[in-house]
Computed example of a mutant assay.
Amino acid sequence: MKIQKKNELLQKRRWRVRKKVVGTSERPRLSLHLSNKHIYAQAINDESGTTVTFVSSLGKDVRSQNLKANNAGAAALGKLFGEKAKEAGVSKVVFDRNGRKYHGCVKTFAEAAREAGLDF
């Protein structure tokens, strides 16, 4: 399959999920992006268009741990994201998996965030 077609299908999946998932001030949207090397997650208030909190594997506090985009890295970042969200006053979120299946790193991240105290 050509790369352009793959990207089109991925974008369609993203749009399909985003039609149903909207972040509010009480319950922001937890958007997770996994690249080949890094993991990025942010809690977004779609009403005001602002980011409440974010974490990535490139952050200053995480960079020393040398986390990769694998299950171990997803678990560590999920736990860190849950803690940062609690500090920001967020206890409930809506999970946006960004067109990916709820499997592997996505599932590991979500479970670690739940263990840290976030309610999906």
Rank of each mutant, 00 (worst) to 15 (best):
K2N: 10
K2G: 01
I3V: 00
I3C: 00
Q4V: 08
K5A: 07
K5R: 14
K6Y: 09
N7K: 14
N7V: 11
E8D: 11
R13N: 06
R13Y: 06
R14W: 09
W15A: 14
V17M: 09
R18N: 04
K19R: 11
K20V: 12
K20A: 09
K20P: 01
V22I: 12
T24A: 09
E26M: 05
R27A: 12
R27P: 01
P28C: 07
P28L: 09
H33N: 06
L34Y: 12
L34F: 14
S35I: 02
S35H: 10
S35A: 05
N36Y: 15
I39D: 03
Q42C: 01
N45A: 03
E47C: 06
S48L: 14
S48F: 14
G49S: 05
T51Y: 01
V52W: 06
F54V: 13
S57D: 02
K60M: 04
D61P: 05
V62K: 12
R63E: 00
R63W: 03
R63Q: 02
S64E: 08
S64L: 12
L67W: 11
L67M: 08
N71M: 07
G73L: 07
A74V: 02
A75W: 10
A76I: 07
L77T: 07
G78Y: 09
G78I: 12
F81H: 13
G82I: 06
K84I: 00
A85W: 03
V90Q: 07
F95K: 13
N98F: 14
N98L: 07
N98V: 04
G99D: 07
G99L: 11
G99M: 06
K101L: 09
Y102A: 10
H103Q: 06
G104N: 09
C105R: 15
C105A: 10
V106N: 02
K107T: 05
K107L: 13
T108G: 01
F109I: 02
A110P: 03
E111A: 15
E111C: 12
R114G: 12
E115I: 09
A116T: 06
D119K: 15
F120S: 15
F120P: 12
